[in-house]
Amino acid sequence: MNEELAELAASGATALVSAMGTDLWQEAKGLMIRVLGRARGSRHNELTVALDRASTAARGAVDARAVDYWTEALSRLLDRDPDLAQDVMALASLRIPERPGNVVQLISATDSAEAFAVQYGSQHFASGPKSRERGERP
């Protein structure tokens, strides 16, 4: 197998496993079913069952073993039939929304200063904060 197809298999597997537990799962599963539908061979049934199990598996963080499993499966399929590359490319090009990780936000204000903070978004001001009289405490 050439290097490009190996990288494509890894990208497709990563996209498939990353979609588990997201709103994109049905689309990713459909794309993988299309790949499996065009690929005939001894592993067709095994991979279909594995895909169905993935549909009901507990979801959460991306499982490296699952990525390895699907990378190997896609590599074999592409090795047997390089024409599957277009279908695997459609799977690999899914854009999985990034899940926010742990965020630590430290805010400090002294001498009656005001601090404004936003997590996961933008903060817009129509006008600046109103200034306080010197010595006025909130």
Rank of each mutant, 00 (worst) to 15 (best):
A28S: 10
D79G: 14
L47Y: 04
L36S: 02
V62I: 13
L51R: 03
I33G: 09
L78E: 05
D83E: 15
T56M: 15
V35P: 03
P82N: 08
M32F: 08
T48G: 12
G60W: 06
L84D: 00
M32R: 06
K29I: 01
T48A: 14
V62K: 07
L78N: 02
L91N: 01
R34V: 06
S42E: 14
R40I: 09
S93C: 05
R80T: 09
G41I: 08
D63P: 06
G60Q: 06
R53E: 15
H44C: 05
V67H: 00
A28K: 07
G37I: 07
A28P: 11
G30P: 11
R40W: 06
R38E: 13
R34I: 03
L78I: 05
L91E: 00
A28W: 06
A90V: 03
K29S: 14
E46Q: 12
S93V: 01
G37V: 03
R43S: 08
T71R: 02
P82S: 06
D81K: 07
A66D: 14
A54W: 01
R65Q: 14
Y69A: 01
G41S: 06
D87Y: 06
D63W: 01
W70A: 01
Y69H: 12
A58T: 15
E46D: 14
G41D: 10
R38A: 13
Y69V: 01
D83H: 12
V62Q: 05
S42C: 00
R80M: 09
L91H: 02
R38D: 12
A54C: 07
T48S: 13
G41F: 03
G60E: 06
A90Q: 14
A39K: 04
D83I: 04
V35M: 07
A85F: 05
D79S: 13
I33F: 09
I33A: 12
S42K: 13
A64R: 10
A85D: 09
E72Y: 09
D68N: 11
V88W: 01
L47W: 06
S55A: 15
A66I: 00
D87V: 00
T56W: 08
